[in-house]
Structure formats: C-alpha cells, structure tokens
Design a binder for these strands. Structure first.
Lengths: 224, 224
DNA sequence: TAGATTGTTAATCGATTAACAATC
DNA sequence: TAGATTGTTAATCGATTAACAATC
C-alpha cells in the first residue's frame, strides 16, 4: 500500500543485508560525485573501482532495483540516487529517540545526517535525574518517565540505545513497552526481544578487533 | 615469527572478514557466560542458538582455529576463549591515537574495553588550538603538531579518525606520514591511502539505513 | 561507423547446512 | 549402556565473476 511504483518494479524485493550495505555505498559515492565534479552520469566501472568490486555486480544490483542504464554512456546519477531512495524507503520518515545521554548519545544526537536517510531524532532520554532538562546536542534531556508519552504521541518507532550494558535490557524493555519496534543497540549487551522486533547491534569492538587482526598479520609493507 | 604455536595449529590461516566477526561474537558470548552462570563448558548448539546460526558452523569455526571439543560434553569455555585470543592476536598489544576531540572521540577515548582486545589508546589529538591541554575522557588533548613524535616514540600503529569528513583525508595523511599503518575511520569520507595501509570504515549511517529498511518493510507484527 | 558500456546468462567460487559415524 | 555431542564429509545454497551479444 505504500510500495511506490513510479518506475517499472513494484515487486517486493527482499534485499539481503549485504546488498543494502552496497546500495548505501553507491548512494554515498554517487551523491558526493554529483556534488563535486559530476558529469551527471556514472558508469558501473567507475563505481566498481571505487568500491573494489566487480563492475557486473554493480550492474546486477542496479538492475535489481530497477534502474536502467544507457548503453555506451552509463547510468544517470539522479536515476540511481532516486532508485536507491525508493528502494530503501528514505522518503518514509521514521522517528527515533536516543536513550542514554552520554558522550555517544551526544555524538549521535548532533549527528545531523540521519535526516538524509529518512530518520528523525525526536528526543533524548536519561534516567539520571540531574541530567534532566539539560540541553544536549540540540535536545533537552527528558526523564525516562516521559518516554511512553513521547513515543506514542510522536509515533516513534526506533530506540537508539547508548546506555551502559547493564542498563541496556531495561531500557530496551521500556522502549518496547512504549511501542517502539526497532532497536539500534550501541551498548554491547545482547538483548532479548520478542519476535518481530528488529534489532541492530553496533558492537564497536568488533570493528576494532577486525582492524587489529588485519594489522597484526599484515607483516609486509610495515615499518615504511 | 610470532605465530604462536602452543596448540596444534601454527598454520597461517587467513580468516575472512565474516569469520573474524563470528569469532568476536563467540568470544563475547562465552566471556559473559563464564562470568555469570557458567558451567565451564559450552556446546556448539548453545552458541549457535544464541547467534541464530547452525551448530555445525560453530564446530567448523572452532575446529579451524584449533580448539578440540569433548564428545558428549562440548567445549571448555577457557579453551575457546584462549584459542580466539590467540587467533585474533589479542596479546600482541597495538597502540592507537584518536584524532578529533569531539563527542565521538570522547566516547571512544573513555570506552575502556578496547584494552581487552589488545588495543591501547595512547593519546588524543585535535587541530583546534583552544582545545589543546584540556582534559578529555582521561587524556589531555594534544596539538596535531605533536602527532609525529608521539606516533614514533610510542610505536603507535592505529589512527582513529573522529574528525568531520572535510578534515578526514588531511588527518589520515598526517597520521600515515607519522608512521601509522591502520586507520579506523569514523568520518564518513572515503579515504585515499597507499597500498598496504589497512582501513576500516565505520560508516554509521549504513547501520541506521539498514535498520530503517528492515523496519519499513516489516509490515506484519507492527503496531502491537 | 567504431567505441563504450549495458543487461544478462552461464560458470565459478565460497560459505552454510545436513547428515552421520566416531567418541566420550 | 544410552544419550549427548563432536568432527568431518558431501550436498546445497547463494553470491560473485566472467563473458559476450545487444545497444546506443
């Protein structure tokens, strides 16, 4: 009922995780392209080179989301951007709250470019009474007791958890009770949530550990 | 020359990205298990259930890093943890600096659990003269001009970039010139780096976009 | 036209799962 | 022993790549 079918493909495609990530990269690259240099076209080979992947994969991805290119010339940037926006649903706004007014919460609150992807932060909450009412990355910190009202009134569907791990499950429970359906979890605790709730864990240390791993074994080229 | 061969497998295994992530998850789960409840054993099925993957995959992964289980009983937690530490090289300390003393930089500086994975933050840097010397997440902010000295003297090999996108390439260049070999990039700019440098981009919005995507299409179960 | 690039199929590669004999 | 769980091979599944005719 909201699958927007201006172009040829209204078919409900169920993108795997890895493809959503690629689309985001394409989007990002092309968006910065068309700001700067920008002819208004881009070829699969250009994108592929930038991302260190095969050009036919790019074409396949773009075909899948219904963009048509032009033989001999490539793809119109605007077509690609538009198709990605449509596929990922950027135009359907989602509202989010941040729970946990620590440094990380602050960083996310003042981040700003979430808008661009259709997500709007509409409140920051914290349990600590002394933090309540303080201004914080452009938001006034609210007490956890106001969470249910805000979530209901504004139709919030995402809770961004930037609380310490011990507090994470409780925060998640409150948010879910209030009506949230998705959780972006920055505490690295594993959450138990009911069926149907979408959770995305952003387990920072995993990134660092992977970087570390690659570094420790990259014996060659070292000590330049 | 430092491939630590206490157990049977000194063979240089080159883990793919996805397996490193799984190992980190195993590590994390088992570590929290053995803190709390903990018998000191764990079965492949337990781990698999927690992670929503197949139990034979767990056994395969563990076999690959040289852990032996015990038929009928599972794996000794300590064996698994030790093997993962060895494989990912946690005991080989790596030093890192944070460039960019903003909120995110602060969050990472005060994060604390990087130690656990063998990475030690040993300085925070910023270009803004008025920030220099301020205390920040336990570190005194240093001017960018001190970067080369610190990197050299302390043998720093990772730069964590928490600067705005416009400043990212420059910060990366300075860090690389100073001798860093790996970059953990939180600015979402794409960096150009010479051959052999290890870069890991932590492009926040990608996580959010993916969460959003799954949420927008999870029509069922919504509006509980 | 000649040159470039798409769209798409078939081939390849790699990762996950199923199955089960061996072990404790 | 009976029950549980490993270790491992073969089968399956899915994703990437190679190749090339069709198109502009």
């Amino acid at each position: 009922m909201d699958s927007d079918s201006r172009t040829q493909e209204p078919k409900e495609l169920d993108l795997r995780h890895v493809m959503v990530e690629r689309l985001m990269h394409y989007y990002h690259f092309i968006a910065s392209l068309s700001n700067n240099t920008a002819g208004d076209s881009v070829t699969s080979t250009q994108i592929a080179r930038l991302m260190h992947i095969d050009d036919s994969l790019v074409r396949k991805d773009l075909a899948e989301i219904g963009v048509r290119g032009h033989s001999g010339h490539g793809f119109r940037c605007e077509d690609v951007l538009e198709a990605i926006r449509r596929t990922l649903g950027f135009s359907k706004r989602l509202r989010a709250v941040i729970i946990g007014a620590g440094r990380l919460g602050g960083a996310l609150a003042s981040y700003g470019s979430f808008q661009q992807y259709g997500v709007e932060i509409c409140g920051v909450f914290d349990i600590a009474p002394h933090k309540v009412r303080l201004m914080f990355g452009g938001y006034q910190i609210q007490p956890m007791t106001s969470l249910p009202i805000v979530v209901k009134q504004m139709g919030v569907c995402i809770a961004i958890l930037t609380v310490p791990p011990e507090a994470a499950q409780d925060a998640a429970n409150r948010a879910l009770d209030a009506g949230v359906r998705g959780i972006w979890n920055f505490s690295n605790a594993s959450l138990e949530v009911p069926e149907g709730v979408v959770v995305r864990n952003e387990h920072m240390s995993i990134g660092l550990a992977e970087l570390g791993y690659r570094l420790r074994r990259g014996r060659m080229g070292h000590d330049t």
